[in-house]
C-alpha cells in the first residue's frame, strides 16, 4: 500500500507554488497515493539498454532565418496584465 501523506502533498505543491486547503491536502493525499500505486507497474518493464523516447516523430535541427518580423504590439500585450505602470507589469512586494 503506497502512502502519500498530507505533508508530501504540501512538499511537492510548494515547489510549484500551489496553495492548498487542509481539505485539498487530504483529498490529494489519497488520490496521488492511488496514482503512484497504479504507475508502479512500470517497475516490471525490462528497460535495459532502451533509449528514452522524447519525441513521437523525430525531427532534427529545425531552423529558419533569424529575421525580425512584425510581432505583437507591446501596449496590446500589456493590456492583459492585471496591473501595470510605465509599460511594465506591476507585481506585489517582493520582500
Amino acid at each position: 500500500m503506497t502512502t502519500f501523506s498530507k505533508e508530501d502533498v504540501k512538499y511537492f505543491a510548494d515547489f510549484v507554488r500551489i496553495g492548498l486547503s487542509e481539505e485539498d491536502k487530504e483529498n490529494f493525499s489519497a488520490k496521488i497515493a492511488d496514482l503512484i500505486e497504479s504507475v508502479s507497474d512500470l517497475k516490471e518493464v525490462d528497460v535495459t539498454g532502451v533509449k528514452p523516447m522524447t519525441h513521437p516523430v523525430a525531427m532534427i535541427n529545425v531552423l529558419r532565418e533569424d529575421e525580425p518580423k512584425d510581432i505583437l504590439d507591446r501596449e496590446v500585450m500589456l493590456a492583459s496584465a492585471e496591473d501595470q505602470e510605465d509599460g511594465l507589469i506591476k507585481v506585489p512586494d517582493i520582500l
Binding site: 510549484v16 500551489i18 485539498d24 483529498n27 496514482l35 503512484i36 507585481v91 506585489p92 512586494d93 517582493i94
Partner: peptide, 24 residues
C-alpha cells in the same frame, strides 16, 4: 507579497484535477 500571489492565484484559479496532475 509576490510569493503569496503565486500560491493564492493557483489555489483559487485551478480546479482539483489540474492541481492533482501538477503535483503528481
Amino acid at each position: 507579497n509576490l510569493e503569496q500571489a503565486y500560491f493564492r492565484t493557483r489555489q483559487e484559479g485551478f480546479g482539483n484535477e489540474v492541481k492533482k496532475r501538477i503535483i503528481f
